[in-house]
């Protein structure tokens, strides 16, 4: 096994299955860094990959980047299609750009950092369990239904360069676990069903600050303006949102 091996793969014109085979092969051969060049819409990159490897992606990866992934770090130099980190288990995805809808869908561990924007339903179904807590940090903004059906984990939305407070509908609708943290104030009418505002405590602020630092570090952004306590925390009004809806025969 060769340590610290860097492997460069030119993805031009390669279908996703052989591309993933090349990645798996490189990992098996001991690569610790893989550079994918000319990526253009290949889906499922690093799908279910279990490894300690850093994958630098140049171009635009297709949907479901890092699906079921457990361990690798994917750095995307560009935008991303929908649902990066779908049901991801562990590892990191760092996106120097924006992503489509359902980012971090059902993610159960690891971290995703998106420099700019995400689409609708970001962080839907994220869930935490035991030591595993998924984290999604978004630099600029997100479309509606952020953190829908969320059952655990943490979403932070920083609102960088945005004029005025966050104004997308249905934040955390159906949320029954986890927290959504939004920079600045949030008008109550943007909260989804089952979501409510919560107190920002010391521990939470500490966690936010450390994630903000990590975020700014990846994207070379000055963290100072973000290190105050101007954050709104949103969580579930109950861990049993449907408990009162039914009666038995």
């Amino acid at each position: 096994m060769v340590l610290d091996e860097k492997v460069v793969i030119d993805a031009r014109g390669i279908h996703y299955t052989p591309l993933n085979e090349l990645i798996r092969q490189a990992v098996e051969d001991g690569a610790t860094e893989i550079v994918l060049k000319n990526v253009l819409g290949q889906r499922f990159i690093a799908d279910a990959l279990k490894a300690d490897v850093c994958i630098e992606i140049y171009g635009v990866p297709g949907g479901d980047l890092g699906m079921f992934m457990s361990g690798p770090v994917c750095i995307v130099h560009g935008n991303c299609e929908h649902a990066p980190g779908n049901t991801m288990d562990d590892g990191k995805i760092i996106i120097h750009g924006s992503t489509g809808d359902a980012a971090a869908h059902s993610m159960r561990g690891g971290k995703i950092f998106v420099r700019d924007y995400i689409g609708y339903r970001g962080g839907i179904h994220m869930k935490e369990y035991d030591q595993k807590k998924p984290i999604l940090v978004i630099g600029k903004s997100a479309h509606s239904f952020l953190g829908e059906y969320m059952a655990g984990g943490l979403i932070i939305l920083l609102g960088i360069d945005q004029k005025g407070p966050y104004f997308e509908r249905g934040i955390g609708s159906g949320i029954h676990g986890g927290r959504i943290v939004i920079r600045g104030t949030v008008d109550d009418r943007y909260l989804g069903v089952g979501a409510r505002k919560m107190e920002l405590n010391e521990n939470m602020l500490c966690e936010i600050h450390s994630l903000v630092k990590e975020f700014c570090n990846y994207f070379n952004i000055d963290d100072k303006p973000l290190m105050d306590n101007d954050y709104t925390v949103i969580g579930p009004s109950s861990s049993r949102p449907f408990a009162g809806k039914y009666t038995w025969e």
């Binding site: 869930k127 369990y129 059952a151 655990g152 049993r240």
Partner: peptide, 11 residues
């Protein structure tokens, strides 16, 4: 892989 006592919701 969900917390104790929380509803397990599959929409």
């Amino acid at each position: 892989m969900i917390p104790l006592g929380s509803d397990a919701i599959s929409p």
